[in-house]
């Protein structure tokens, strides 16, 4: 029996999760929300994390009903993410690990999403679309590595949506993406926007400039403007998501995989799920059900990825437990996954 405590705080959410052999015992979280028309500043998010850290940790332990002596290891998000919030979280994790005399493991945030997704959906070897405020990647496992098949060349899709929400002054509560989705439902007219796929990679910044310009130059009555806003949200979503689904489909065709897993905050968007589902249906593939436990940043997913590494014998030295803003998914040695193809080929 292995019990792991995971700390997540790479962006505007702080969460602590307790995992016991793949069972989530507790997973409380607190989100820093900035006023409409503004994004969150990293120092403010870091301050938020510092303020809530101990309260959330206490909540997590109380709810999980585990004693400190039962805990096997502490895990925390090493990267990628924003520097200041990452540091705040890492400091708490390091202090707790030394206080309780537990081993400490740094976890890649993206791998956290993926491993939690695999745990919850029981998908064996899915092709993963990772879409969030900071990341846009199509990932598939191959040779002890989560290989990136396609990714964004500039900004992340969530960032594109968030920034557009700021342009048209939509509320950030509960999240800008959720509110854009609600506006998009009322959209009627499709406005053609740039559609940018380069090889397997995508680019969103030009699309953002284009819709921003459209939004800022449009003149009309209040009513017209309101409808125009809806149409823009609708067109933006349709265009961006079509790009995501197209690249995912090509990755599917390439790898021959039959499962698709969407992880990251943008995965909560119902329209994206519906589009992906339609694509999967046409191909005879399965779309794994969406779940908050692996879509929205949380502590348990960090604990789960940490558990995989811990069980495979990975241990980090305290002096190596730093943070890094740039930490690619394909830099992680995925030694805990069994490589069926290589066993078949007699390599292992």
């Amino acid at each position: 029996m292995v019990i792991i405590v995971g700390f997540e705080g790479s962006a505007n959410k702080f969460g602590v999760g307790v995992i016991k052999d793949g069972e989530i015992l507790s997973n409380p979280r607190d989100t820093y929300i900035s006023p409409p028309g503004t994004g969150f500043r990293p120092p403010d998010a870091a301050r938020h994390h510092r303020n809530v850290a101990l309260r959330i940790l206490k909540e997590a332990l109380t709810e999980a009903k585990v004693k400190v002596s039962e805990i096997d290891a502490i895990c925390y998000t090493k990267g990628p993410g924003m520097g200041a919030p990452l540091v705040s979280t890492a400091v708490v994790a390091r202090a707790i690990a030394q206080l309780w005399k537990k081993p400490l493991l740094g976890v890649n945030h993206c791998v956290g999403h993926i491993e939690m997704g695999r745990l919850v959906t029981k998908a064996d070897n899915p092709t993963i679309l990772y879409v969030s405020g900071g990341n846009t990647q199509v990932v598939a496992y191959s040779k002890q590595c989560y290989r990136i098949f396609g990714e964004t060349l500039d900004i992340a899709i969530g960032s594109c949506l968030d920034r557009f929400a700021r342009v048209i002054k939509i509320s950030n509560d509960p999240s800008p993406g959720y509110n854009i989705e609600q506006f998009a439902k009322k959209g009627k007219k499709f406005i053609m926007l740039p559609y940018v796929i380069k090889g397997m990679d995508m680019s969103f910044s030009g699309i953002l400039s284009h819709v921003t310009k459209l939004a800022k130059t449009k003149m009309g009555s209040e009513e017209e403007m309101a409808q125009f806003k809806n149409d823009l949200c609708y067109s933006l979503q349709e265009t961006l998501f079509a790009m995501l689904v197209e690249v995912t489909e090509r990755a599917l065709a390439h790898t021959g995989s039959t499962e698709v897993l969407i992880v990251g905050g943008v995965g909560c968007n119902i329209r994206l799920q519906k589009m992906m589902e339609a694509m999967c249906e046409e191909r005879g593939a399965r779309l794994c059900a969406m779940d908050d436990r692996y879509c929205i940043d949380n502590g348990a997913m960090i604990a789960q990825a940490g558990l995989c590494a811990f069980n495979a014998g990975v241990r980090d030295k305290l002096s190596d437990c730093s943070i890094t803003q740039r930490f690619r998914t394909d830099e992680v040695d995925v030694i805990w996954r069994i490589d069926y193809k290589r066993i078949k080929a007699g390599v292992i």
């Binding site: 499709f190 559609y195 349709e238 079509a242 689904v245």
Partner: peptide, 13 residues
């Protein structure tokens, strides 16, 4: 035709 995308965009692509 791809059912997942809106008709205008689908035709255009």
């Amino acid at each position: 035709s791809k059912k997942y995308r809106v008709a205008e965009l689908d035709k255009h692509i």
